[in-house]
Computed example of a mutant assay.
Amino acid sequence: MKDGHGRVIDYLRISLTDRCNFRCVYCMPEEGVQQLSHFDILRIEEVEQAVRVATTIGIKSVRLTGGEPTVRKGLVDLVRNIAAMPEIENVSMTTNGVLLPRMAADLKAAGLSRVNLSLDTLDAEKFHKITRCGSLDDALCGIDAALESGFNPVKINAVALRSLADGFLDFAKLSIDRPLHVRFIEHMPIGDVSEVDGISWGKDGVISCEEVFNIINEGARAQGLGELVPAGEDKPIGWGPAEYYHFPGAAGTVGFISPLSRHFCSKCNRLRLTADGKLRPCLFSDVEYDLRTALREGTEEDQRAVFLQALGAKPDEHHDKVGTERGMSQIGG
C-alpha cells in the first residue's frame, strides 16, 4: 500500500508499554511519566488484532518498542503469535537489553528475528548519568545474550551527542571483532531537556552524522585501523534508513542515521502505534488517529479504516519540526 506521496508503507512500529526500567534523560523525567492505566493501554490480544488488520494494507514488518518492551507481560506469546501470521516477514524489537539474559532464548524460539539495543555510551559513569539508574555491565550482558541466542543482525543504537564525541571511536570498534552493527543516530531534541550533569540534550548538543564519521576516521587513522569504507552488500538486513560502512576486515558494520542533517523522509516506510492505541503517521507530528476505540467497539473494517486514515495523512517530510506534545517514552522509540 502506498501513501499519498507514493511511498510504500510496509513497516509498523508498536509501543507495547510506556513503562521502563531506565529513566533516560532524553526520554522521560527522573520520576517517570504518569503511567497509563490498564484500561488505557492496549491488551496483548488487541495488539495482535491491530497487526492482523495492518497486514491487510500491506504491513510486512513489525518492530516492538516501548518504553521498554521486555517489561511487558505476555511479550513472548505476542512475538510467537505475530510471527505466525503468514503475511508477516519479520518481527524485531528495540530494547535496552538488561532483561535479555533471561529472555533472549525464549524470544528467539518464539520467532523474534533480530534485536536493536539502545546504548549511548561505553563510559560507566556517563551511562549511569544518562539512564539515571542503569548499569553498563548489565547492558553489555544483554549484547552478549543477543549474540549467544543467535540473533542476526544484532544492532546497537547510539544517540550521537557532541558531548559524547570522545567515545565515538570506541563504539565503532565494537564492530571489528564481533558481528555487531553499531549505528549512530543524530539526536532529535524531543521534549524540554537541555542539560543533565554536563551532557547537553538541547539543540547545542546535536552533532551531524558527517561530523561523527570524520571523528571516527580521524581516530582510526591515529590508531592504524584504516578508515571506514562503504559496506556495500555486507550491510545488515533491515528496513531503516542507515548508511553502512565498515573497517577493513571487520566482522560488523558502522551505520549512520541522519534524520536532521540529511532528511530521509522520502524513503519513510512506517506507521507508529502507541501503547494507548493511537496511530501516528510521523514521529515529529502530533497528529494521531484513535485505533483503540475501533479495536474495542468497531468491526475489522472500522479498524482498517483508521489505518487507511493514518496512511493518507503521512506528511511529505517533517519540515525540520522538532519537539512533540508527547515524550519519546509515550510515542515509542
Results as ranks from 00 to 15, higher is better:
163 S>G: 03
188 M>D: 11
309 Q>G: 12
33 V>C: 09
182 V>H: 03
194 S>T: 15
302 D>V: 05
154 V>Y: 01
157 N>V: 11
22 F>P: 02
259 P>D: 11
100 L>I: 10
185 I>N: 00
8 V>Y: 07
187 H>L: 15
142 G>V: 07
276 D>A: 04
88 I>H: 02
54 A>D: 03
181 H>N: 15
7 R>T: 10
152 N>M: 05
316 D>H: 12
19 R>G: 11
174 L>I: 07
199 I>C: 09
112 L>K: 04
76 V>Q: 06
12 L>R: 01
49 Q>I: 05
270 R>N: 07
258 S>Y: 01
54 A>F: 01
193 V>L: 12
98 V>G: 00
317 E>K: 11
70 T>H: 05
88 I>S: 03
48 E>C: 09
23 R>H: 13
37 S>A: 10
60 K>D: 09
145 A>Q: 06
72 R>E: 10
283 L>C: 10
299 T>Y: 05
25 V>H: 03
291 L>E: 03
216 I>G: 00
116 N>P: 07
294 A>Y: 05
322 V>Y: 04
222 A>Q: 15
211 E>S: 13
294 A>D: 06
226 G>L: 11
233 E>Q: 12
284 F>Q: 14
240 G>R: 08
130 I>R: 02
44 I>K: 06
219 G>V: 11
82 I>S: 06
58 G>E: 02
132 R>H: 09
205 G>T: 13
44 I>R: 13
115 V>F: 03
180 L>R: 01
321 K>A: 14
284 F>I: 01
2 K>I: 14
293 T>N: 12
184 F>L: 07
285 S>M: 10
290 D>V: 10
